[in-house]
Design a protein around this nucleic acid. Structure first.
Lengths: 214, 214
DNA sequence: ACGCAAAATTGCGTGCACGCAAAAATATGC
DNA sequence: GCATATTTTTGCGTGCACGCAATTTTGCGT
């Protein structure tokens, strides 16, 4: 947090390689999972597809599920803090936070829609995807203190954690309904758009956010 | 949730035996962990001490850490909902919830203080203990809807999850400071009593809780 | 008391995560 | 350019969680 604004020095070779293997692993894991189904992918195959040993694979991801999910969920999370700070100073904290989080799930993203379907179908992947929102929380807390220096570090952490919890609830609910979609006839209307779900889940926290900003 | 108030029928033999083995496993796990240190306890030993196979042990607990921690954390959680409902109807939702959660960590409990020290010392056990507060959340949501029928199920879930998140933050902070206690001279003043920590962490959520109760 | 259905326990096999220490790759000072 | 310190990769060994199917235990109706 005291990084001031280190301009991300010339990316040393080490970091570039690390990033490369991480992305290779993510891509391989997701691709294989989509091809064969999540349960028919052995860790050894993921590592082999990325050109590393299984041990190094485990140096990057603590579980097979995270390797599969990381690509679709992790990077988007990094944008939340920036989105909060980007809102004009006039709007309240609650609005800023809610819109920032909603914005994350608003656009279709660059991921194939099949990925979300697969994640929704597998309980293990669902849990992993839902728990990935934790990535938001620390940067969000930072953004909150930056925007409203009066809130104090504890309150910021608590509010960020609360927002994360609400997002988890919303995701869980939405994925729960989405997972069983291809059931009957072609009437597979997604029960409700995700952003609306997130907004509804975040709504009860608005009073707390606005009250803290004073 | 539609159990109305089933008066916990005559506990059938099966349930009694299940409860017995579960408690035996908890007790054995905690005892062995305290004796030898958490890392020097093999699952097989826990199972053997409880008189069951390692496979049945895994039918009761999904991880060794949970077996050790469950005894000190799980049962207390069950009381939260009751505590919320026990508060007189006059006090606001926020006060009721906060006091209920604080009350959980207020009394020393029937557990040896060494247990908490051990948990605080081991990162793995800490995480497990912290994550155990999730047990609160569903009953808490139920209690909230019972107390304030106007809040709607989604809001109740969100608020309960937010409270759980705040409690996790408080626990994490407190355990982090407590873990390194036996460092220098005998001046090992616990940085601050846990209840105060919890109260402080729950404070920022009060506006949301009170606003929902209307 | 008997027998059948439901549920729990058990053993086995498999895949996985991770600690540890050696080896390879990369950065840094001279 | 070369030697050295730091970091990353890798292989190996260990312990663990869990699916599956057979077996034992419990519940309940007759």
């Amino acid at each position: 947090m005291c990084d001031s604004d280190a301009v991300t020095d010339p990316p040393t070779l080490r970091e570039r390689k690390k990033r490369a293997t991480r992305e290779a692993l993510q891509a391989a894991a997701l691709r294989l999972a989509l091809e064969r189904g999540p349960d028919n992918v052995r860790v050894e195959e993921i590592a082999q597809a990325a050109g590393v040993s299984t041990r190094t694979y485990n140096n990057y991801f603590p579980s097979r599920e995270q390797a599969i999910v990381a690509g679709v969920a992790a990077d988007r999370a990094a944008g939340v803090a920036a989105a909060v700070l980007a809102r004009p100073a006039g709007v309240g904290l609650a609005d800023a936070v809610v819109e920032a989080v909603v914005g994350l799930y608003a656009d279709p993203g660059d991921q194939p829609p099949a990925a979300l379907l697969m994640i929704a179908a597998s309980p293990t992947l669902r849990d992993c995807y839902v728990e990935a929102v934790t990535t938001f929380e620390e940067p969000l807390a930072g953004a909150v203190t930056t925007r409203c220096p009066g809130v104090g570090p504890l309150a910021a952490r608590v509010l960020a954690a609360a927002v994360g919890a609400a997002a988890r609830v919303a995701l869980r609910q939405w994925l729960h309904g989405t997972g069983e979609v291809p059931s009957m006839a072609g009437f597979v209307v997604p029960p409700a758009p995700l952003p609306d779900f997130v907004r509804a889940a975040l709504l009860p926290l608005a009073p707390a956010l606005d009250a803290a900003a004073s």
